[in-house]
Amino acid sequence: MATEGLRLLTFDEWEYACCAGSTTLFRWGDFNPSDCYPNHKGADWKLHLQPNLFGLHIAQNPYDCEIISDKHTVRGGDGGVSICGGMGAFLGWLPLATAYWEPDGLDWLDEDISGHLMRRVIPLP
C-alpha cells in the first residue's frame, strides 16, 4: 500500500471522517432504537445505513471493524462482541459511535486482516 503512495487513516482522521462535523454521540444524532440491534434485518430504523455528511458509508455494522494506522486499535465496530455478549441494545449500538474505539482490537481479531475494512488515504502535497 505504501509503495502505491497510500496509507491508512490515523486514529483522529478516522474519527473526523466518521463524524463529518457532527458533535453528537453518533454521526446521525444522540439517539438509537432501544428495541433492536444495528444488524437487525427486520428493523424499520435504518438511519445508520445512510452515508454521513461527507458521503462516506462508515460505522454501519458493529461486526465490521476498520483497521487504522494504530496497530492495536480498531474503529467503527467491535467485531460483534457487544451484541454477541448480550449486553443490551444501547451497548450493541455503541461501537458505531463516532468516538468509540476498541483498544487491543487486533489482539482478538484474526491475524489475517485481509477480510477487515481499511480506508486508504492518498496524501495530498
Rank of each mutant, 00 (worst) to 15 (best):
F90A: 08
A20K: 01
F11G: 11
P95C: 04
F11P: 12
S114P: 03
G21T: 07
D112M: 06
P125I: 05
D12K: 12
C36I: 04
A97H: 07
P123N: 09
N61A: 05
F11H: 15
W101K: 15
G55E: 01
E66G: 09
T23H: 11
E66H: 14
F54T: 02
F31M: 05
G86I: 10
F11I: 14
E102V: 15
G105R: 04
L6M: 15
L94A: 10
D30M: 08
L9C: 12
F54C: 08
G21D: 03
A97L: 05
G105C: 10
D107G: 02
L53K: 10
P33E: 03
P33L: 08
S34W: 12
S34C: 09
I58V: 04
L8K: 09
T98D: 02
L91M: 08
P103G: 02
P33S: 05
A99L: 13
P123R: 11
M87G: 08
L106M: 14
G86T: 07
P51R: 08
P103N: 08
V74I: 15
G85Q: 13
L106E: 14
L56A: 02
F26Q: 11
R27N: 08
D112Q: 00
C84W: 13
N39S: 13
I113H: 00
W101R: 15
T23D: 13
D35L: 02
G86D: 05
G88S: 04
G42D: 13
R27H: 10
D78R: 05
S34M: 13
L91G: 00
L56W: 00
P103C: 03
C18A: 11
H72D: 15
L8Y: 06
D64C: 09
L96M: 09
G5R: 06
T10H: 12
S69F: 12
I83P: 01
G42L: 12
E66M: 13
L124Y: 11
T98M: 01
A20Q: 02
N52T: 02
F31C: 08
G29H: 10
D107R: 12
P33R: 06
R120T: 13
D78Q: 06
L53W: 04
V74F: 15
G80I: 00
C18L: 03
N32D: 01
G79I: 05
L109Y: 07
N39A: 14
W28G: 08
H40A: 09
S82N: 02
W28Y: 07
H72V: 13
D70S: 14
V81D: 11
C18M: 06
F31K: 12
P38D: 09
Y37P: 07
S82K: 08
M87W: 14
L53P: 01
G55Y: 00
D78V: 10
A59H: 10
M118G: 14
E102L: 15
I113V: 14
F90M: 13
Y63L: 05
W28Q: 11
F31P: 00
Q60T: 08
I113F: 00
L117P: 00
G55Q: 07
G85T: 06
W93T: 00
E102G: 14
L49Y: 01
W45D: 01
I113Q: 07
Y63E: 10
A20Y: 03
Y16K: 15
